[in-house]
Design a protein around this nucleic acid. Structure first.
Lengths: 184, 184
DNA sequence: TAGATATACATCGACGTCGAGGTTAAAAAA
DNA sequence: TTTTTTAACCTCGACGTCGATGTATATCTA
């Protein structure tokens, strides 16, 4: 998703892509060559991108990568109907968010945000007693577990706040677009 | 780490462990059987835990798992000197935090928190222009990328705040412990 | 002019995770 | 009584990621 998402902005070669993916995914978590290049090849085989050899501006020749219509469609499908992990795993979610603008319909964007919003709504129960009853933060012995739950709660509220504002905004724009189209 | 960490609290059987790990790791991200049971076997082979068959309280017989001294030592090594990913990957970091209390020395605990603190200090540059210059949040077109960076910044500040208080607290306690030991 | 460095691409084996499938056993529902 | 459900455990193949290794090229440095 990150590869196609970045290529949707402008053509890039593998090396450049590698650095961009690395600084996005998490925050400068390196992506191994052994992951990137086979994935590029897979996307090329699936006709999601094309490759043009260009002289290297600094060193060895580059393979400039460009996204195709097939690739754009694939990217939009991934964004419109993301796998569960992209909603529940923070790292993946942030990657998705970084490219959600490529899904051009505000209503569809709002639907994706709503899925995340719904996920964040369910109260997190992280720790349990020996007998299986959930332990509330104030009854935890470990200050680290206490902090973990505090931070978790606080960051969740921050994101929920943003999500609500964003969803309202998108729905309003979608409504406006509909009224425009209907000549209202 | 999660397996040994939970067993350090009290003995558990695989199924119970599975649910606890699932609700901790991320937030109810299921852990596949094909991941859990081979890992338990690996830890058993490494003498990190022992297995006693007990009658199932509800159904099929359980394998009650208990951590050994070797396992405790291993857990403490992982906590004391975590791999880079445990500092930089939020999911892994939260798992580590959930068990950091098993590292009994407050000075060692503070050192781990300091590593995370140091990581959070470096300003995140997530997006770049076509020519490679970093794009500040206010110049981003996508509201999602803008929100992503806002949320990232805000949650970072929250955690930094907690880390600083916690580190100060631990160092004070460590100092006090030293003064106690020295009869001061 | 020789070596080091950074760019740029590629492959391969080791390892971890997942998901599907299967087994046993007790309790609950049909 | 049979079926279904849930608990509890296990294995296997597919797949993805990593890290090591290797190659070529242009620039910078000794």
């Amino acid at each position: 998703m990150a590869i196609l998402g970045f290529l949707r902005d402008f053509p890039l070669h593998g090396y450049d892509l590698k650095n961009r993916v690395a600084s996005l995914a998490g925050h400068v978590r390196p992506v191994a060559d052994g992951t990137l290049y086979p994935t590029i090849k897979k996307l090329e085989d699936a006709q999601c991108l094309t490759r043009r050899t260009a002289p290297g501006s600094v060193a060895a020749p580059r393979h400039m990568l460009e996204i195709t219509q097939t690739g754009t469609d694939q990217l939009r499908r991934w964004l419109r109907d993301p796998e569960p992990g992209f909603i529940t795993d923070d790292n993946k979610w942030y990657v998705l968010l970084a490219f959600l603008h490529h899904l051009e319909n505000p209503r569809e964007q709002a639907l994706v945000l709503a899925r995340r919003r719904e996920f964040l709504d369910q109260p997190a129960q992280l720790f349990f007693d020996a007998d299986g009853t959930p332990v509330p933060p104030e009854r935890l012995d470990s200050p680290f577990r206490k902090g973990l739950m505090q931070i978790h709660r606080s960051t969740n509220l921050t994101e929920i706040d943003w999500l609500d504002r964003q969803i309202a905004d998108l729905n309003q724009r979608a409504g406006y677009a509909v009224r425009q189209r209907d000549g209202d």
